[in-house]
Write a protein that binds this DNA or RNA. Sequence first.
DNA 1: CGATGCATTGAGAGGACTCAATGCAGGTGG
DNA 2: CCACCTGCATTGAGTCCTCTCAATGCATCG
Lengths: 241, 241
Amino acid sequence: MDIQRKDVHNSDTPLLCQACESRHRGVCGALTSEQLLQLSKHSSRRTVEPETELVGESLQTKSYSNIISGVVKLSKMMADGRQQIVGLQFAPDFLGRPFRQENGVSAQAATEVKVCSFPKAAIERMIREMPELEHKLLEQTLTELDEARDWMLTLGRKTAGEKVASFLLLIATHAFPDNESDTVTFDLPMSRTDIADFLGLTMETVSRQLTKLRKDDVIRIVNNRHVTIPDLTRLSDRAGF
Amino acid sequence: MDIQRKDVHNSDTPLLCQACESRHRGVCGALTSEQLLQLSKHSSRRTVEPETELVGESLQTKSYSNIISGVVKLSKMMADGRQQIVGLQFAPDFLGRPFRQENGVSAQAATEVKVCSFPKAAIERMIREMPELEHKLLEQTLTELDEARDWMLTLGRKTAGEKVASFLLLIATHAFPDNESDTVTFDLPMSRTDIADFLGLTMETVSRQLTKLRKDDVIRIVNNRHVTIPDLTRLSDRAGF
DNA sequence: CGATGCATTGAGAGGACTCAATGCAGGTGG
DNA sequence: CCACCTGCATTGAGTCCTCTCAATGCATCG
């Protein structure tokens, strides 16, 4: 891929934005330098701890954010406490939903997360003025819809073993989107309980399936979180592909 | 609700479009009479039988459609034949995905379906010229994403009984969106096997759960397809809300 | 050195699946 | 007009996978 990214008018680009992924692959790519500058005056960066509530069911819909780094989990909960994680978001995803109140989806930081937040009003005005921005949002929303539907197949039709393998595969590909080799190493961005809530299983079942994959030498685990996949193809087979 | 819909310039509106739901609640609502007229010259209506493939994995991405009536199921299949229905679409939903090849989702008619189809090129040009059209698409995509995530909770965390109740509730609300009373009667738009594929169950389990709901007098069934729900609240309880 | 917070492992129970038989309606042809 | 077929749907019996509940392991931290 092109290692040197072309970026005209670097001098006009706000400092904060220059190294930001959202500038290149995210929604901010739709903005001119001038608009970016204007927006950046109202934007604020912050770093939050795991489990921090970023979007609550009723909480602040007053701002939108770009994810700079880290993983955000979107989850739904039933009245009796049963929980389901319905999506994971990575940098440089856009967080928050224009034109609607979140219908019972809440967002929490899974890992430590850096975000760049803007006031709701500023974004919504820009959307109205910039069709290109709305186009970017449509693109991301379509991608999320695809991912949600992929996951529905996993939730509805795969066995526990296939689910866990699918999860590892998902993280592996998102952690290193451009990975060329077959071997990948990474840290799991979430606990066993979170993984269970993402897969529609119990954490005991997740643990047993991870142990089985380890014993079959499909994965290696140290310290509960650090995972090595020596051969992505073998993991892929376990995921039902 | 307003029984008499206001519709200016009826005289300019193409005949085919005048009674069409898409004109009011669907994407065509974004078009001017002139654009509608132009589009209608290239559009064609057709009625298809249940199980007709409307969008195949590789098949014709050459046209987009509005659903005039009937129910369309979106499904994904694994290599070994396991199947999952990942969404249902009703009138006046827009069928087909701009800017991308369908990633392994196919669409089949669940019931008899009437569609109004347009050439791919015409729509994509209009999208580029009409931000309002893209906005409508974003709206629909966001709605589909919400529905997909709701269903992920159902697939991942609900029991068989709750799943079947949730399905009946979904159909009941979509069949009569503006229903005021507690009682609803309708025909199921799909077979037991389809319902099972939507719920991530086997058709035997679906059948047993329907029988249980019938014996508990939560629903009434005649002729396998025709269902009456005397009290939506009681069904809602069964669905886990 | 306990305490605390995950994760793993084990034993038993239960819910959904599998496989198979039966039921039921509509259509067809003798 | 009835017999048969065909295509769903229902029902039954037994199995298995995942859950539940409980104990144990293993780090980190005060």
